[in-house]
Amino acid sequence: MSKNFNMDAMTLHQVRNPKAHMYRSVCVIATFNKLGRMEPVALRFETEEEKFDVRIDRVLSCQSEWTDTIVFQCLVTVGDRQQQVKLLYEISEHIWRLL
């Protein structure tokens, strides 16, 4: 059963062994504008025991790093507070990672 972070008091960093999950691939829903620019809208963070759905409030920055990677600095609401997360998109692999 998925949890909605907007209703929980947890943060992404309170899941069990968060460092073990860094750079782990995550599911992301993204939109594309007329020019083909991508913007993440929501992500699903999964551990072996739990799944968390997180809505992205705003993309603060988007940078192309190297030739094959885009890094998105995003603002999310978790419970009653906001926090920043970084999402990395690997273009050739079509994989999203939570940094």
Score class of each variant (00 low, 15 high):
14 Q>E: 09
4 N>G: 01
31 T>C: 14
7 M>I: 08
88 L>T: 08
83 Q>V: 07
41 V>P: 00
83 Q>L: 10
49 E>T: 06
39 E>D: 12
50 E>R: 10
5 F>M: 14
27 C>E: 04
54 V>F: 13
20 A>L: 07
51 K>I: 05
22 M>W: 06
10 M>D: 13
77 T>G: 10
1 M>Y: 06
31 T>I: 08
63 Q>K: 11
72 F>L: 04
49 E>K: 06
16 R>P: 02
89 Y>L: 13
99 L>E: 06
24 R>N: 02
3 K>E: 11
41 V>D: 08
74 C>W: 07
75 L>K: 14
9 A>I: 06
77 T>D: 11
88 L>G: 04
14 Q>H: 07
23 Y>Q: 06
59 V>Y: 02
62 C>M: 14
84 Q>N: 08
17 N>Y: 05
40 P>A: 04
67 T>H: 01
17 N>T: 02
88 L>I: 12
92 S>M: 13
33 N>R: 04
9 A>V: 10
79 G>Q: 01
3 K>L: 05
58 R>K: 14
72 F>T: 03
45 F>M: 03
1 M>T: 12
77 T>M: 14
17 N>P: 04
70 I>Y: 05
38 M>W: 05
87 L>K: 00
70 I>T: 09
52 F>S: 01
71 V>Q: 11
31 T>D: 15
97 R>A: 04
80 D>A: 13
50 E>M: 10
30 A>Q: 13
63 Q>Y: 04
96 W>N: 03
93 E>K: 01
88 L>E: 12
59 V>H: 05
99 L>S: 08
11 T>M: 01
57 D>E: 12
69 T>N: 06
97 R>H: 04
68 D>E: 08
45 F>W: 07
58 R>D: 15
40 P>R: 04
64 S>E: 15
55 R>W: 05
48 E>F: 08
34 K>M: 12
32 F>W: 14
82 Q>N: 15
91 I>E: 07
25 S>G: 00
5 F>D: 00
34 K>A: 10
9 A>H: 08
89 Y>S: 13
5 F>L: 12
26 V>C: 07
69 T>A: 02
16 R>G: 03
20 A>Q: 06
6 N>M: 14
93 E>S: 09
94 H>A: 12
24 R>Q: 11
16 R>S: 09
40 P>G: 04
82 Q>M: 13
78 V>Y: 06
44 R>M: 08
62 C>G: 04
28 V>M: 00
73 Q>L: 09
89 Y>V: 13
81 R>S: 10
39 E>H: 03
25 S>V: 07
72 F>N: 01
60 L>R: 10
35 L>R: 15
90 E>L: 14
34 K>F: 11
63 Q>D: 10
67 T>S: 01
20 A>Y: 14
54 V>M: 06
29 I>V: 10
68 D>T: 11
43 L>G: 01
2 S>N: 02
6 N>W: 11
58 R>T: 15
82 Q>D: 15
91 I>C: 03
14 Q>Y: 07
8 D>M: 06
14 Q>M: 12
39 E>A: 12
9 A>L: 14
28 V>S: 02
54 V>A: 01
82 Q>A: 07
74 C>L: 02
48 E>S: 10
51 K>R: 01
15 V>S: 00
75 L>G: 08
59 V>L: 09
27 C>V: 02
38 M>I: 15
